[in-house]
Design a binder for these strands. Sequence first.
DNA 1: TCTGGGGTCCTAGGACCC
DNA 2: TCTGGGGTCCTAGGACCC
Length: 421
Amino acid sequence: MFALVDGNNFYVSCERVFDPRLEGVPVGVLSNNDGRFVARSAELKALGVKMGTPAFQVRDLIRQHRVRVLSSNYTLYGDMSARVVQTLREFAPEVDVYSIDESFLGLRGLEHLGLAAYGRGIRSAVKDWVGIPTCVGIGPSKTIAKLANRAAKQVPEFGGVCDLSDPVLRDRVMQTIPVGDVWGVGAASARKLEALGVLTAADLRDVDRRQVRQVLTVVGQRVVDELRGISCLPLELVTPQQKALAVTRSFGRTVDAWEPVREAVVTYATRAAEKLRHAGLAASYVQAFCHTNPFSADPQHHGVAHLALLEPTSDTFEIVGAAVACAQRAWRRGFRYGKAGVILDGLVRPERAQRSLLGPARDPEKSARLMAAMDAINGRLGRNTVYLAGAGRPEQREWKTRFDRLSPRYTTSWDDLPVAR
DNA sequence: TCTGGGGTCCTAGGACCC
DNA sequence: TCTGGGGTCCTAGGACCC
Protein backbone atom coordinates (compact mmCIF):
# COMPACT_ATOMS: atom_id res chain seq x y z
CA MET A 1 0.00 0.00 0.00
CA PHE A 2 1.07 3.55 -0.78
CA ALA A 3 0.05 6.88 0.65
CA LEU A 4 0.44 10.16 -1.19
CA VAL A 5 0.73 13.23 1.02
CA ASP A 6 0.24 16.44 -0.96
CA GLY A 7 0.31 20.01 0.32
CA ASN A 8 -2.86 22.00 -0.35
CA ASN A 9 -2.19 25.05 -2.53
CA PHE A 10 1.36 24.56 -1.33
CA TYR A 11 2.98 27.91 -2.17
CA VAL A 12 -0.02 29.84 -0.85
CA SER A 13 0.01 27.76 2.34
CA CYS A 14 3.72 28.52 2.87
CA GLU A 15 3.01 32.25 2.60
CA ARG A 16 0.09 31.99 5.01
CA VAL A 17 2.18 30.35 7.72
CA PHE A 18 4.12 33.59 8.13
CA ASP A 19 1.44 36.12 7.20
CA PRO A 20 -1.90 35.19 8.79
CA ARG A 21 -3.55 38.20 7.14
CA LEU A 22 -3.59 36.02 4.02
CA GLU A 23 -6.03 33.58 5.67
CA GLY A 24 -9.58 33.60 4.36
CA VAL A 25 -8.89 35.95 1.45
CA PRO A 26 -8.06 35.17 -2.19
CA VAL A 27 -4.29 34.68 -2.60
CA GLY A 28 -2.27 33.78 -5.68
CA VAL A 29 1.41 33.08 -6.28
CA LEU A 30 2.93 33.91 -9.66
CA SER A 31 5.48 32.07 -11.79
CA ASN A 32 8.92 33.47 -12.54
CA ASN A 33 8.83 36.91 -14.13
CA ASP A 34 5.46 37.41 -12.39
CA GLY A 35 3.89 35.78 -15.46
CA ARG A 36 1.19 33.27 -14.59
CA PHE A 37 -0.63 31.97 -11.53
CA VAL A 38 1.05 28.77 -10.31
CA ALA A 39 -0.70 28.50 -6.94
CA ARG A 40 -4.17 29.68 -5.89
CA SER A 41 -5.97 29.70 -2.58
CA ALA A 42 -9.45 28.13 -2.46
CA GLU A 43 -10.92 31.65 -2.53
CA LEU A 44 -9.04 32.48 -5.73
CA LYS A 45 -10.07 29.19 -7.37
CA ALA A 46 -13.68 30.08 -6.47
CA LEU A 47 -13.28 33.32 -8.45
CA GLY A 48 -12.60 31.18 -11.52
CA VAL A 49 -8.86 31.83 -11.88
CA LYS A 50 -7.39 28.72 -13.47
CA MET A 51 -3.94 27.23 -12.99
CA GLY A 52 -1.54 28.93 -15.39
CA THR A 53 -3.67 31.99 -16.12
CA PRO A 54 -1.48 34.95 -17.17
CA ALA A 55 -1.72 37.59 -14.45
CA PHE A 56 -2.36 40.48 -16.82
CA GLN A 57 -5.49 38.77 -18.19
CA VAL A 58 -7.27 38.96 -14.82
CA ARG A 59 -6.03 42.37 -13.73
CA ASP A 60 -9.55 43.76 -13.22
CA LEU A 61 -10.65 40.76 -11.19
CA ILE A 62 -7.56 41.10 -9.01
CA ARG A 63 -8.37 44.73 -8.28
CA GLN A 64 -12.11 44.13 -7.74
CA HIS A 65 -11.68 41.30 -5.26
CA ARG A 66 -8.50 42.62 -3.65
CA VAL A 67 -6.64 39.44 -4.55
CA ARG A 68 -3.29 39.24 -2.75
CA VAL A 69 -0.75 38.47 -5.47
CA LEU A 70 2.80 37.33 -4.65
CA SER A 71 5.95 36.48 -6.63
CA SER A 72 7.34 32.97 -6.14
CA ASN A 73 9.60 32.72 -3.11
CA TYR A 74 11.37 29.46 -3.93
CA THR A 75 13.79 29.77 -1.04
CA LEU A 76 10.87 29.78 1.40
CA TYR A 77 8.96 26.96 -0.34
CA GLY A 78 12.05 24.75 -0.54
CA ASP A 79 12.71 25.13 3.16
CA MET A 80 9.08 24.50 4.12
CA SER A 81 9.09 21.43 1.88
CA ALA A 82 12.11 20.03 3.74
CA ARG A 83 10.26 20.51 7.05
CA VAL A 84 7.24 18.61 5.76
CA VAL A 85 9.46 15.73 4.60
CA GLN A 86 11.23 15.65 7.95
CA THR A 87 7.85 15.30 9.66
CA LEU A 88 6.77 12.50 7.30
CA ARG A 89 9.93 10.55 8.13
CA GLU A 90 8.74 10.40 11.73
CA PHE A 91 5.71 8.45 10.56
CA ALA A 92 6.91 6.15 7.82
CA PRO A 93 10.19 4.31 7.27
CA GLU A 94 9.86 4.68 3.50
CA VAL A 95 9.47 8.21 2.10
CA ASP A 96 9.75 8.87 -1.64
CA VAL A 97 9.96 12.64 -2.17
CA TYR A 98 8.25 13.12 -5.51
CA SER A 99 8.07 16.90 -5.82
CA ILE A 100 8.31 20.04 -3.73
CA ASP A 101 4.84 19.42 -2.28
CA GLU A 102 4.25 15.67 -2.67
CA SER A 103 5.69 12.56 -1.07
CA PHE A 104 4.76 8.90 -1.42
CA LEU A 105 4.97 6.75 1.70
CA GLY A 106 5.34 2.98 1.81
CA LEU A 107 2.76 1.55 4.19
CA ARG A 108 3.86 -2.07 4.24
CA GLY A 109 3.56 -3.43 7.75
CA LEU A 110 1.49 -0.52 8.98
CA GLU A 111 -1.93 -1.89 7.94
CA HIS A 112 -2.78 -2.93 11.51
CA LEU A 113 -2.87 0.74 12.51
CA GLY A 114 -5.89 1.35 10.27
CA LEU A 115 -4.73 3.21 7.20
CA ALA A 116 -7.28 6.02 7.21
CA ALA A 117 -6.63 6.77 10.88
CA TYR A 118 -2.91 6.67 10.15
CA GLY A 119 -3.44 9.18 7.32
CA ARG A 120 -5.36 11.50 9.63
CA GLY A 121 -2.50 11.32 12.14
CA ILE A 122 0.04 12.37 9.51
CA ARG A 123 -2.18 15.15 8.32
CA SER A 124 -2.61 16.72 11.73
CA ALA A 125 1.09 16.35 12.60
CA VAL A 126 2.16 18.21 9.46
CA LYS A 127 -0.41 20.92 10.15
CA ASP A 128 0.59 21.28 13.81
CA TRP A 129 4.36 21.04 13.43
CA VAL A 130 4.93 22.82 10.12
CA GLY A 131 1.69 24.73 9.58
CA ILE A 132 0.94 23.29 6.13
CA PRO A 133 -2.48 21.75 5.38
CA THR A 134 -2.26 18.52 3.36
CA CYS A 135 -4.45 15.78 1.94
CA VAL A 136 -3.65 12.07 2.05
CA GLY A 137 -4.60 9.47 -0.55
CA ILE A 138 -4.12 5.75 0.00
CA GLY A 139 -4.12 2.91 -2.53
CA PRO A 140 -2.39 -0.27 -3.75
CA SER A 141 -0.39 1.58 -6.45
CA LYS A 142 1.03 5.05 -6.77
CA THR A 143 -1.48 5.91 -9.48
CA ILE A 144 -4.40 4.89 -7.27
CA ALA A 145 -2.92 6.79 -4.32
CA LYS A 146 -2.88 9.80 -6.64
CA LEU A 147 -6.56 9.32 -7.50
CA ALA A 148 -7.33 8.94 -3.80
CA ASN A 149 -5.50 12.14 -3.06
CA ARG A 150 -7.50 13.98 -5.69
CA ALA A 151 -10.73 12.65 -4.18
CA ALA A 152 -9.54 13.68 -0.70
CA LYS A 153 -9.05 17.21 -2.00
CA GLN A 154 -12.33 17.46 -3.90
CA VAL A 155 -14.87 15.64 -1.74
CA PRO A 156 -15.34 17.40 1.63
CA GLU A 157 -16.90 14.27 3.20
CA PHE A 158 -13.50 12.54 3.14
CA GLY A 159 -12.11 15.12 5.56
CA GLY A 160 -8.78 15.29 3.74
CA VAL A 161 -8.01 11.55 3.85
CA CYS A 162 -9.24 9.05 1.26
CA ASP A 163 -8.39 5.35 1.51
CA LEU A 164 -9.08 3.45 -1.70
CA SER A 165 -7.80 0.06 -0.59
CA ASP A 166 -11.43 -1.13 -0.69
CA PRO A 167 -12.23 -2.14 -4.33
CA VAL A 168 -15.89 -1.12 -4.14
CA LEU A 169 -15.20 2.46 -3.04
CA ARG A 170 -12.28 2.55 -5.49
CA ASP A 171 -14.54 1.67 -8.40
CA ARG A 172 -17.09 4.30 -7.39
CA VAL A 173 -14.46 7.03 -7.22
CA MET A 174 -12.83 5.95 -10.51
CA GLN A 175 -16.11 6.32 -12.36
CA THR A 176 -16.25 10.00 -11.40
CA ILE A 177 -12.71 10.92 -12.49
CA PRO A 178 -12.18 12.13 -16.08
CA VAL A 179 -9.51 10.14 -17.91
CA GLY A 180 -7.40 13.26 -18.42
CA ASP A 181 -7.06 13.64 -14.64
CA VAL A 182 -5.34 10.28 -14.28
CA TRP A 183 -1.63 10.57 -13.44
CA GLY A 184 0.35 9.98 -16.63
CA VAL A 185 -2.48 10.86 -19.01
CA GLY A 186 -1.78 14.31 -20.46
CA ALA A 187 -3.73 16.35 -22.96
CA ALA A 188 -2.48 14.44 -26.01
CA SER A 189 -3.26 11.00 -24.58
CA ALA A 190 -6.61 12.15 -23.21
CA ARG A 191 -7.68 13.25 -26.69
CA LYS A 192 -6.77 9.86 -28.17
CA LEU A 193 -8.54 7.97 -25.40
CA GLU A 194 -11.70 10.07 -25.59
CA ALA A 195 -11.86 9.36 -29.31
CA LEU A 196 -11.98 5.66 -28.38
CA GLY A 197 -14.79 6.28 -25.92
CA VAL A 198 -12.54 5.96 -22.88
CA LEU A 199 -13.82 8.79 -20.71
CA THR A 200 -13.15 7.97 -17.05
CA ALA A 201 -10.45 6.40 -14.92
CA ALA A 202 -12.68 3.32 -14.64
CA ASP A 203 -12.95 3.11 -18.45
CA LEU A 204 -9.18 3.26 -18.77
CA ARG A 205 -8.71 0.54 -16.15
CA ASP A 206 -10.98 -1.77 -18.18
CA VAL A 207 -9.49 -1.08 -21.60
CA ASP A 208 -7.65 -3.84 -23.49
CA ARG A 209 -3.94 -3.81 -22.64
CA ARG A 210 -2.76 -4.47 -26.20
CA GLN A 211 -4.98 -1.76 -27.57
CA VAL A 212 -3.68 0.82 -25.12
CA ARG A 213 -0.13 -0.22 -25.93
CA GLN A 214 -0.73 0.54 -29.60
CA VAL A 215 -2.17 3.96 -28.86
CA LEU A 216 -0.08 5.09 -25.89
CA THR A 217 3.00 2.78 -25.92
CA VAL A 218 4.27 1.06 -22.80
CA VAL A 219 3.69 4.19 -20.76
CA GLY A 220 -0.06 3.87 -21.21
CA GLN A 221 0.06 0.18 -20.54
CA ARG A 222 1.74 0.83 -17.22
CA VAL A 223 -0.97 3.32 -16.27
CA VAL A 224 -3.62 0.69 -16.98
CA ASP A 225 -1.84 -1.90 -14.84
CA GLU A 226 -1.46 0.61 -12.02
CA LEU A 227 -5.18 1.41 -12.21
CA ARG A 228 -5.89 -2.33 -11.86
CA GLY A 229 -3.98 -2.31 -8.59
CA ILE A 230 -0.81 -3.87 -10.02
CA SER A 231 2.01 -1.69 -8.75
CA CYS A 232 4.52 -0.92 -11.53
CA LEU A 233 6.08 2.24 -10.13
CA PRO A 234 8.18 1.35 -7.09
CA LEU A 235 9.07 3.74 -4.28
CA GLU A 236 12.28 5.58 -5.06
CA LEU A 237 13.97 5.70 -1.72
CA VAL A 238 17.35 6.81 -2.97
CA THR A 239 17.33 9.73 -5.36
CA PRO A 240 18.74 8.48 -8.68
CA GLN A 241 21.67 10.42 -10.05
CA GLN A 242 20.56 13.53 -11.85
CA LYS A 243 21.10 13.43 -15.63
CA ALA A 244 20.63 17.02 -16.71
CA LEU A 245 20.47 20.47 -15.18
CA ALA A 246 19.11 23.70 -16.59
CA VAL A 247 18.97 27.40 -15.84
CA THR A 248 16.56 29.13 -18.20
CA ARG A 249 14.71 32.36 -17.70
CA SER A 250 12.48 34.85 -19.48
CA PHE A 251 13.79 38.39 -19.59
CA GLY A 252 12.02 41.24 -17.82
CA ARG A 253 11.78 42.81 -21.27
CA THR A 254 12.88 41.77 -24.74
CA VAL A 255 16.33 42.77 -26.02
CA ASP A 256 17.65 42.99 -29.57
CA ALA A 257 21.38 43.48 -29.02
CA TRP A 258 23.89 40.66 -28.54
CA GLU A 259 25.43 42.01 -25.31
CA PRO A 260 22.40 41.56 -23.03
CA VAL A 261 21.89 38.02 -24.34
CA ARG A 262 25.54 37.28 -23.67
CA GLU A 263 25.24 38.73 -20.15
CA ALA A 264 22.21 36.56 -19.44
CA VAL A 265 23.92 33.43 -20.76
CA VAL A 266 27.04 34.13 -18.68
CA THR A 267 24.84 34.63 -15.62
CA TYR A 268 22.79 31.47 -16.20
CA ALA A 269 25.88 29.37 -17.00
CA THR A 270 27.54 30.62 -13.82
CA ARG A 271 24.48 29.63 -11.81
CA ALA A 272 24.31 26.25 -13.59
CA ALA A 273 27.96 25.54 -12.71
CA GLU A 274 27.24 26.42 -9.06
CA LYS A 275 24.31 24.01 -8.97
CA LEU A 276 26.51 21.39 -10.60
CA ARG A 277 29.22 21.70 -7.95
CA HIS A 278 26.62 21.75 -5.20
CA ALA A 279 25.41 18.37 -6.48
CA GLY A 280 29.00 17.11 -6.67
CA LEU A 281 28.73 16.46 -10.43
CA ALA A 282 30.46 17.37 -13.67
CA ALA A 283 28.87 18.03 -17.07
CA SER A 284 29.84 16.48 -20.41
CA TYR A 285 27.74 18.68 -22.73
CA VAL A 286 26.71 22.33 -22.72
CA GLN A 287 23.74 23.72 -24.59
CA ALA A 288 22.55 27.32 -24.86
CA PHE A 289 19.46 28.76 -26.50
CA CYS A 290 17.74 32.08 -27.02
CA HIS A 291 14.09 32.49 -28.01
CA THR A 292 11.99 35.38 -29.19
CA ASN A 293 8.73 36.00 -27.32
CA PRO A 294 6.27 33.54 -28.91
CA PHE A 295 3.27 35.69 -27.91
CA SER A 296 4.44 38.79 -29.75
CA ALA A 297 3.84 39.58 -33.41
CA ASP A 298 7.60 40.06 -33.93
CA PRO A 299 9.48 37.78 -36.35
CA GLN A 300 10.20 34.55 -34.46
CA HIS A 301 13.48 32.74 -33.95
CA HIS A 302 14.45 29.85 -31.70
CA GLY A 303 18.22 29.53 -31.74
CA VAL A 304 20.01 26.63 -30.09
CA ALA A 305 23.52 25.17 -30.20
CA HIS A 306 25.51 22.64 -28.21
CA LEU A 307 29.06 21.67 -27.53
CA ALA A 308 30.77 18.58 -26.11
CA LEU A 309 33.37 19.44 -23.49
CA LEU A 310 36.81 17.88 -23.77
CA GLU A 311 36.31 16.24 -20.38
CA PRO A 312 33.40 16.45 -17.93
CA THR A 313 33.90 19.55 -15.77
CA SER A 314 32.23 21.78 -13.21
CA ASP A 315 34.58 24.71 -13.79
CA THR A 316 32.62 27.95 -14.17
CA PHE A 317 35.06 29.42 -16.70
CA GLU A 318 34.96 26.39 -18.94
CA ILE A 319 31.18 26.07 -18.80
CA VAL A 320 30.63 29.79 -19.34
CA GLY A 321 33.05 29.74 -22.27
CA ALA A 322 31.23 26.86 -23.92
CA ALA A 323 27.80 28.39 -23.23
CA VAL A 324 28.78 31.74 -24.74
CA ALA A 325 30.22 29.99 -27.81
CA CYS A 326 26.88 28.17 -28.20
CA ALA A 327 24.85 31.33 -27.65
CA GLN A 328 26.90 33.12 -30.26
CA ARG A 329 25.88 30.51 -32.80
CA ALA A 330 22.26 30.58 -31.63
CA TRP A 331 21.81 34.37 -31.67
CA ARG A 332 20.89 36.21 -34.86
CA ARG A 333 20.85 39.90 -35.59
CA GLY A 334 17.47 41.49 -36.14
CA PHE A 335 15.38 39.55 -33.61
CA ARG A 336 14.02 40.63 -30.24
CA TYR A 337 14.87 37.92 -27.75
CA GLY A 338 12.74 37.30 -24.66
CA LYS A 339 14.27 34.23 -23.12
CA ALA A 340 17.57 32.41 -22.88
CA GLY A 341 18.85 29.31 -21.15
CA VAL A 342 21.79 27.07 -20.44
CA ILE A 343 21.40 23.29 -20.18
CA LEU A 344 24.09 20.96 -18.87
CA ASP A 345 23.79 17.35 -19.94
CA GLY A 346 25.63 14.08 -19.48
CA LEU A 347 26.14 14.67 -15.76
CA VAL A 348 28.59 12.28 -14.11
CA ARG A 349 30.42 11.93 -10.83
CA PRO A 350 33.83 13.50 -11.56
CA GLU A 351 35.78 10.48 -10.33
CA ARG A 352 33.95 8.28 -12.84
CA ALA A 353 34.35 10.64 -15.78
CA GLN A 354 35.86 9.46 -19.05
CA ARG A 355 39.20 11.26 -19.45
CA SER A 356 40.47 12.70 -22.70
CA LEU A 357 43.70 11.77 -24.45
CA LEU A 358 44.18 15.48 -25.02
CA GLY A 359 44.15 16.17 -21.30
CA PRO A 360 41.94 18.49 -19.28
CA ALA A 361 41.33 22.01 -20.58
CA ARG A 362 42.33 23.52 -17.23
CA ASP A 363 44.52 22.34 -14.38
CA PRO A 364 42.04 20.37 -12.22
CA GLU A 365 43.79 21.20 -8.94
CA LYS A 366 43.80 24.93 -9.57
CA SER A 367 40.27 24.87 -10.90
CA ALA A 368 38.95 23.05 -7.83
CA ARG A 369 40.64 25.51 -5.47
CA LEU A 370 39.41 28.54 -7.39
CA MET A 371 35.83 27.25 -7.59
CA ALA A 372 35.84 26.43 -3.87
CA ALA A 373 37.04 29.95 -3.10
CA MET A 374 34.36 31.54 -5.30
CA ASP A 375 31.63 29.41 -3.80
CA ALA A 376 32.80 30.20 -0.27
CA ILE A 377 32.85 33.95 -0.89
CA ASN A 378 29.45 34.02 -2.57
CA GLY A 379 28.04 31.67 0.05
CA ARG A 380 29.09 33.88 2.92
CA LEU A 381 28.71 37.35 1.44
CA GLY A 382 25.88 36.93 -1.06
CA ARG A 383 25.43 35.53 -4.52
CA ASN A 384 26.83 38.40 -6.57
CA THR A 385 29.91 39.22 -4.52
CA VAL A 386 32.26 37.78 -7.14
CA TYR A 387 31.05 37.14 -10.68
CA LEU A 388 32.42 37.05 -14.19
CA ALA A 389 32.79 40.45 -15.86
CA GLY A 390 30.92 39.10 -18.88
CA ALA A 391 27.75 38.94 -16.79
CA GLY A 392 27.52 42.74 -16.61
CA ARG A 393 26.92 44.73 -13.43
CA PRO A 394 23.92 43.30 -11.55
CA GLU A 395 22.19 46.67 -11.16
CA GLN A 396 22.54 47.39 -14.88
CA ARG A 397 21.11 44.15 -16.27
CA GLU A 398 18.23 45.38 -18.41
CA TRP A 399 17.06 41.80 -19.06
CA LYS A 400 16.64 40.92 -15.37
CA THR A 401 13.64 38.72 -14.50
CA ARG A 402 10.84 40.46 -12.60
CA PHE A 403 9.98 39.60 -9.00
CA ASP A 404 7.95 42.62 -7.98
CA ARG A 405 5.94 41.14 -5.12
CA LEU A 406 8.39 38.94 -3.31
CA SER A 407 7.66 37.99 0.30
CA PRO A 408 10.49 37.81 2.87
CA ARG A 409 12.70 34.71 3.18
CA TYR A 410 11.29 34.12 6.66
CA THR A 411 13.15 30.91 7.42
CA THR A 412 16.49 31.19 5.61
CA SER A 413 17.76 34.77 5.99
CA TRP A 414 18.60 36.55 9.25
CA ASP A 415 17.60 39.85 7.66
CA ASP A 416 14.12 38.54 6.92
CA LEU A 417 13.38 36.93 10.28
CA PRO A 418 9.80 37.65 11.37
CA VAL A 419 9.45 39.97 14.35
CA ALA A 420 7.21 38.94 17.26
CA ARG A 421 5.64 41.65 19.39
C1' DT B 1 2.99 46.49 -21.83
C1' DC B 2 2.14 41.93 -19.71
C1' DT B 3 2.21 34.84 -20.99
C1' DG B 4 7.32 30.01 -15.95
C1' DG B 5 11.06 26.70 -14.96
C1' DG B 6 13.17 22.26 -14.32
C1' DG B 7 13.11 17.76 -14.84
C1' DT B 8 12.33 12.44 -16.76
C1' DC B 9 11.16 8.82 -19.99
C1' DC B 10 10.09 6.82 -24.53
C1' DT B 11 10.35 6.29 -29.53
C1' DA B 12 11.77 6.86 -34.24
C1' DG B 13 15.28 7.28 -37.20
C1' DG B 14 20.03 7.88 -38.57
C1' DA B 15 24.75 6.23 -38.30
C1' DC B 16 27.41 2.62 -37.74
C1' DC B 17 29.16 -2.30 -37.24
C1' DC B 18 30.06 -7.14 -39.29
C1' DT C 1 16.04 -5.51 -64.19
C1' DC C 2 18.19 -7.30 -60.10
C1' DT C 3 21.91 -5.06 -54.18
C1' DG C 4 20.82 -8.65 -47.00
C1' DG C 5 20.19 -9.30 -42.33
C1' DG C 6 20.84 -8.45 -37.71
C1' DG C 7 22.40 -5.83 -34.45
C1' DT C 8 23.90 -1.40 -31.19
C1' DC C 9 24.30 3.37 -30.02
C1' DC C 10 23.03 8.12 -30.11
C1' DT C 11 20.03 12.09 -30.53
C1' DA C 12 15.97 15.00 -31.36
C1' DG C 13 11.53 15.63 -30.30
C1' DG C 14 7.27 14.59 -28.05
C1' DA C 15 4.72 13.71 -23.90
C1' DC C 16 4.37 14.07 -19.32
C1' DC C 17 4.99 15.66 -14.44
C1' DC C 18 4.77 19.50 -10.69
